[in-house]
Design a protein around this nucleic acid. Structure first.
Ligand SMILES: [Zn+2]
Ligand SMILES: [Zn+2]
Ligand SMILES: [Zn+2]
Ligand SMILES: [Zn+2]
Lengths: 135, 135
DNA sequence: ATAGTTATTGTTATAATATAACATTGTGTA
DNA sequence: TACACAATGTTATATTATAACAATAACTAT
């Protein structure tokens, strides 16, 4: 039986793979139009092609959007099957972003209840400060 | 001695006041161009006039930007002198946003250290889920 | 195999969000 | 009064993101 080129394990499609590879090798968050510029040599010509791949990659947790920067990074956790509980530290000088994977932080936030006793299904946390190098 | 029209206590300038008033009476986060549309009758004609007022209002903690929505709400805490430690709950259906003021949450996050022992000077947290009405 | 279904791609145009640059006026301070 | 700084006005432009439509590729279930 022939192996499918695209199966249930979220194997990436051509555009998704091209764009993921670029984000993955980028040392800092990369913006949509910077991605577009970089993949034009691979035949991806239009913003929509980029945004569609980004949407999918975010949906399956391979990348995350840094909301305060409108930029994207590869998941550094290898455990974010879904982007529903994310935390990052962002250096305000060099713009380096690190994904925080702290069991106690995620436990605290996942279990957090507001004053009405309400729990939430998803969160995104961005810390700001200066990274080691920039202090 | 004459009382200054604009003093150190962050009294708002004309445009800042107009725009703050609008945001303050808005029941949900409002976007920059919706603000622009609403204040044109008051003589504010250009996006830059809106964005400049927004920048200042954010800086002094009178409003906050909801990053995932590119929209602005008035501070609901009356204690955010500066926008450096913010947390919100966002309903994914009706888009209602509530500012969370939980002493234990802010204490936890303000004191949070990453695995390098690093503390951060600022954070923004957005929780997502369904509000009471939408469940 | 094959029809039906869904995901992905390609393409053009346009919407929505945000800033640059420059000139001018208002305000607080000394 | 002079200086410095904050705020305003204005035009143009940059950046980020989506709408709408058509075509192809891949998966599902007979
Ligand atoms: Zn991740
Ligand atoms: Zn840094
Ligand atoms: Zn506040
Ligand atoms: Zn709701």
């Amino acid at each position: 039986m022939r192996i499918s080129k695209m199966n249930k394990m979220h194997n990436l499609s051509k555009n998704q793979q091209i764009i993921f590879d670029l984000i993955h090798k980028s040392p800092e968050p990369i913006k949509a139009y910077a991605i577009l510029f970089n993949v034009q040599k691979k035949g991806i010509k239009a913003p929509l092609q980029v945004y569609r791949a980004l949407d999918k990659l975010v949906e399956i947790g391979k990348i995350h959007k840094i909301e305060s920067r409108n930029a994207f990074i590869a998941c550094q956790n290898s455990s974010c099957q879904v982007s529903k509980a994310t935390a990052f530290s962002i250096c305000e000088i060099c713009e380096k972003v690190t994904e925080i994977s702290s069991a106690s932080l995620s436990k605290y936030l996942t279990n957090f209840k507001d004053k009405d006793g309400m729990k939430y299904s998803k969160y995104n946390l961005e810390f700001f400060g200066l990274c080691k190098k920039c202090r």
